[in-house]
Amino acid sequence: MNSFMTENETTYQKLTPNDTWTSQSMVDIPVRAVNFGDGLFETMVFDHGEIRFFDKHIKRLYEGMGVLGLKSENIDPKELLHFLRKNYPDILLRVRWNVVRAGKGKYTPERNEVIQNLQLSEFKTASAVKGSADVSLKIQLFPTPWSRFKTLNSLPYVLANLERTERGLDEIILLDNRGFVSEAGSSNVFWVKDEVIYTPSLSCSCINGIGRQAILDQLTKKSIPFQEGEYKISELETSDQIFVSNCTGISYLGRFQRRRLDTRPLDFLKLIFH
């Protein structure tokens, strides 16, 4: 049996849609997850009875399952939320929800049902400031039909963050294969210039982050000027502020390359992740 000891505090698994979530001290690794990275995941925040931005997470997951040809009827978001409310009613948690194609096979799948597991751990909010950042010298992102989703095949981000630690950085910025700014090592990237907020469009092979969606919704609601587009690194080099965001919150960059940046939080973004 191929198993691993989870690094998270608590893990649950659901082998078929009709199963209940079962606590596991060791988890059977789905064959297709190991062999092909054949699945998706959502990292979410469970905040005292609610999953932040749950509708956005579910929409992205369903869209990703459609691209991978996985059976969307195999997952039950309401059941998942009920399970967390029942077992962790007053706790703030980081929830990773893995949805993996079931069965064996080689490159050609034998079936499209899914195996699910949950990895629950203590939630830690994003650092308010990340001291230093630079552009990756090794990793570029390439467009695929699944670029905007969070898949189990995450080697570009693993290697980018390995480079980040080797270079002693707090954040790393990734470009796409054409040289346009794409995203950060585990976050979407935004910058402020002349009171306008900019962020790469999804055409730059970045993930359609839930935090990104929430920020753009807030900017629209507050009538704050913003632009999505394809931008060269020179735009970051001349910006007033740079911040990165994922579901855990917003972090401002203290320095990009050798240039110091303003890290004062933007008032209209403060309440999005609370």
Rank of each mutant, 00 (worst) to 15 (best):
T20N: 15
I242A: 08
D134E: 10
Y198W: 06
A33W: 09
T22V: 15
F256I: 05
L162N: 10
G254Q: 09
E73T: 08
A33R: 08
V129R: 07
Q140A: 07
A160N: 02
L15N: 15
V114R: 11
T125R: 00
V192N: 01
N246G: 06
S201R: 09
E122S: 02
P89C: 05
I210F: 05
N18L: 07
I215G: 06
V100A: 13
I173T: 07
T238C: 02
I115W: 12
E171G: 11
E237T: 03
T199H: 08
S3Q: 15
Q13Y: 14
T220V: 14
G211S: 09
V27M: 04
K106I: 13
I58Y: 00
M5Y: 13
T248N: 01
E113W: 08
T10E: 15
V45F: 04
E171P: 07
F4I: 05
S147H: 07
E113P: 03
S25D: 12
L84Y: 03
G37T: 00
W21L: 12
K221C: 13
Q116V: 07
D90M: 10
K221G: 10
T16S: 14
F53R: 02
T16D: 13
P77I: 02
T16Y: 09
P77K: 01
P17G: 15
R164D: 03
A128T: 02
P200Y: 03
V34N: 06
G179A: 01
I215K: 10
N153F: 08
G39F: 10
I233V: 14
P145F: 11
V99K: 01
C204H: 00
M1V: 04
T263N: 10
T263Q: 11
